[in-house]
Design a protein around this nucleic acid. Structure first.
Lengths: 214, 214
DNA sequence: ACGTGCGTGTTACTTACGGTAACACCGAGT
DNA sequence: ACTCGGTGTTACCGTAAGTAACACGCACGT
């Protein structure tokens, strides 16, 4: 019958797709975002056209791959954000979760942050702003939602929450990237410094002697 | 004579180099980071090998090009940061300067943020963290220096300043990128919201009724 | 049993780009 | 007149994305 037939095929295709994604994952884990379609196909034991049949183009494969990791990381972050503890404690736990993730698998992290690389055709048309990694955008939106749901920010709070969501995620991202490259301090210290920043220590700090403050 | 000869040649080469950079600038302004070496050479009225003689490889050209814009933007930011005004006013002026710049020339902005794209060979070796746009790193370092110089942060202040420098720049960057894509509010509102975030409104906000705060 | 689709796989190709080698012109110094 | 260094070219290589065309196998209706 048509329905069962379609279901069987669907299941088979889905399993195949997952296998291909896992192969792609291994290659990306080894080669970073430079992983070529040929290499991924070889790792999966097949050839290029099959990849293209499943994912359309490189962007499609990368999007599917990114979605897996992004979903996983976002789940961890949500858990940290939802834990029963004081606000500052939860903020620190969330920061630490993110930093631990990028520390544990830097190649995956690189891939997630710069998935758009290497495309010489087709990418021409998309407007500014879209070039941002989907991970950052999604994290920003989710955090914005949490902020809006839980904090009383008065009138205009919704918009404020969105700005803050993206801003805080960007802060975390940039600081994490820099930290990962230079390792100037421990993870815990970084978390604490960033939380201090969010907690208004910038505004509260006194001027240094000899000039006007920053 | 040898010296004058060398000087003449040097001047000629420098002028040529500047012409080439201006041509490259026009192409990047039109095509964004996807600008190809062929296109740039054509715009300059010459062919590829000349570009390679002047800049080594694509990375060299992009670095030279990025340096121009980065220097220009950093000068504007320094001016805003050094203006004689209250701390918050200067922070807002700096944020606004940055946002006005990326708003005015989005293609250049895109190019500056993702200069490493398109390289399929050679980029393999560089470690995590290096893939960050030089502009962000330089802004982060400069801001860190300003913070360290002007704010009294007590013991460990130097490290704190560096974390904050990169963190604040990342916040500005991410929020700006998101804002540029969605335009959810005016520039002034965005500036105000970000400054509020830096001024500790996150910590000061009350919980919403019905649940624990964020 | 036999063709007929259809999904799965392949080889071989095109196109585009970064980068380079080899050759051509041209003006200055001996 | 002859070389020499700088400027320019054409023509090529290697690699990677993406595609067209062909080949195998397996369930299906007749």
């Amino acid at each position: 019958m048509d329905t069962t037939q379609r279901t069987d095929q669907q299941k088979s295709a889905d399993r195949r797709r997952r296998e291909l994604l896992e192969a792609a994952d291994r290659v990306v884990l080894r080669d970073g975002p430079q992983a070529s379609m040929n290499a991924i196909a070889a790792e999966a034991g097949i050839t290029k056209p099959i990849l293209y049949r499943h994912f359309g183009d490189k962007g499609g494969l990368y999007a599917a791959l990114a979605k897996r990791h992004t979903d996983a990381l976002l789940n961890s972050l949500r858990a940290a954000l939802d834990a029963p503890a004081e606000r500052r404690e939860r903020v620190e736990a969330t920061l630490d979760t993110y930093l631990a993730a990028i520390e544990a698998r830097p190649q995956v992290y690189r891939f997630l942050m710069h998935p758009a690389e290497g495309g010489q055709v087709g990418d021409q048309g998309f407007d500014v702003g879209k070039h941002f990694a989907p991970l950052l955008r999604r994290m920003g939106e989710e955090l914005a939602q949490v902020i809006e749901d839980r904090l009383d920010l008065g009138p205009g709070g919704q918009q404020l929450a969105r700005v803050w969501g993206h801003g805080i995620v960007g802060m975390m991202h940039a600081a994490g990237d820099w930290w990962l490259g230079e390792r100037p301090c421990s993870r815990a210290e970084l978390v604490r410094s960033l939380a201090d920043l969010l907690w208004g220590r910038l505004a509260a700090a006194g001027d240094k002697v000899g000039g006007p403050g920053f």
